[in-house]
Write a protein that binds this DNA or RNA. Structure first.
Lengths: 237, 237
DNA sequence: TTATATTCGTACGAAACCGCACATAAGATG
DNA sequence: CATCTTATGTGCGGTTTCGTACGAATATAA
């Protein structure tokens, strides 16, 4: 179990120095995150932070009338709960598990203590926060200018990057909620991708057949975020 | 001149303790920001940070095809250049003066030194960054779900909050660039507001006549950002 | 197997927004 | 004043997306 799910599977944790890893790892607890689990509701004071391993968490804003839109997505490249060290301790959005899996959980207080040591961990967390800001910004741009087709491609690529293989378990209804569009819109867009043999979609199971083509069809938004994230958080290996 | 433009007119600078004010103020230089001036281009390593006094700066993303979208807006409540202390030193977006006026400029290095003292300034800057994140998130949501009419209201209110009176000097063309819509769309939306006696618009000069009504017509996005900003950065006075 | 729930496909009118073209009007310039 | 530039108003066809409704297909349960 814990031989498969090493903390190092999370890129942020992996990039810490040995000293910091030892101290931080002693506070980590492996938890299972089922699909749809809500880690934070809007305004909740965060009790834990999460470092996803093979799960994906969406930061989702839900409006008064129930409509929703995904602000950003967090997988093994990042962490959930940045508002903790940013000072607010809560956000107006919801953190919800978009793809079931596992994560390492750490209690707020020890994490804040580590952050406040003003060293490697703080630097890393701030750089990650900037990459998250980039993703949010690009989401705003993409929402403004790009078609559902393109946005679906972006969304698929962002998800793929955070999973271990090319399989996504995700109904069109759920994707529609993330993109903030109608379910029928996703059906159409996914149908086009299927006709192009880019994906194979069947009742909540997507298999990506041709990733290069997916990137080709996609708007520039994915590449911008990817490039900036790589710049901010280079993976040393 | 500098009797009118006190550093304290910027809310972030004003909220520093006397000690920190003394140290920081010695590095500040009052600069004039003409309309359209670009403070940073995408990817530029930032040489200065800016604390607006009576100017407004837009963080704008410009796409490959020239289309654009405003990510967030910064006035006397904030600062331009957060990427400096977040670690990236640059962003994929452009910082451009949206409303002419003045700002206090500070060189990057002394500012980073202040930030790294790990005290009040750091805490404040991080809280401000979180409020900026909230604004970006809500922009993404608003871009997804709300009409041009509503978005124009949000945009006007965000601008109003950062100005000293109810006068905006801004062509419809420019607003359209910020919102990422057609100029004609802004003409129509502004026409409706004018018919409702909410604004008076004439060749680049907007006078807001009825702010309460403006807030009423607006989508929830403005209030969400406003409330969260007030929570994160209470003004002690 | 049969019934039921879930997921997906399709259709259609309405609305919002776009791209484009052009007219009008208000300042600016000479 | 006459001219030019800039800013705004308006109209129209085309596209995308929406809201809604309904049917088909697949999984799940009785």
């Amino acid at each position: 179990m814990s031989t498969i799910f090493k903390p190092q599977k999370n890129h942020l944790l992996a990039s810490l120095s040995v000293d910091n890893q030892e101290r931080v790892f002693s506070h980590l607890k492996l938890v299972s995150l089922p699909l749809g689990k809500v880690l934070y509701e809007p305004g909740d004071v965060m009790q834990h932070v999460y470092f996803p391993i093979d799960s994906i968490v969406s930061l989702l804003y839900v409006m008064e009338d129930g409509a929703s839109a995904e602000i950003s997505v967090v997988g093994n490249e990042g962490m959930v709960g940045i508002a903790l060290f940013m000072g607010g301790e809560s956000t107006p959005s919801r953190a919800i598990v978009q793809s079931a899996g596992h994560a390492y959980q750490m209690k707020s207080n020890p994490f804040k203590e580590e952050f406040n040591l003003n060293g490697e961990i703080m630097t890393l967390m701030l750089r990650y926060t900037q990459s998250l800001i980039t993703q949010m910004s690009q989401t705003a741009v993409c929402n403004r200018h790009h078609s559902i087709d393109q946005q679906l491609c972006r969304w698929l690529l962002l998800s793929l990057d955070r999973l271990e293989d090319e399989h996504l378990y995700m109904t069109q209804e759920l994707i529609a909620n993330m993109l903030g569009v109608r379910r029928e819109g996703v059906t159409e867009a996914a149908g086009k991708l299927q006709q192009l043999d880019v994906i194979d979609y069947s009742r909540g199971h997507i298999k990506v057949l041709d990733r290069p083509k997916l990137e080709e069809i996609c708007c520039e938004c994915y590449a911008v975020v990817k490039k900036e994230t790589d710049r901010l958080l280079p993976r040393h290996q």
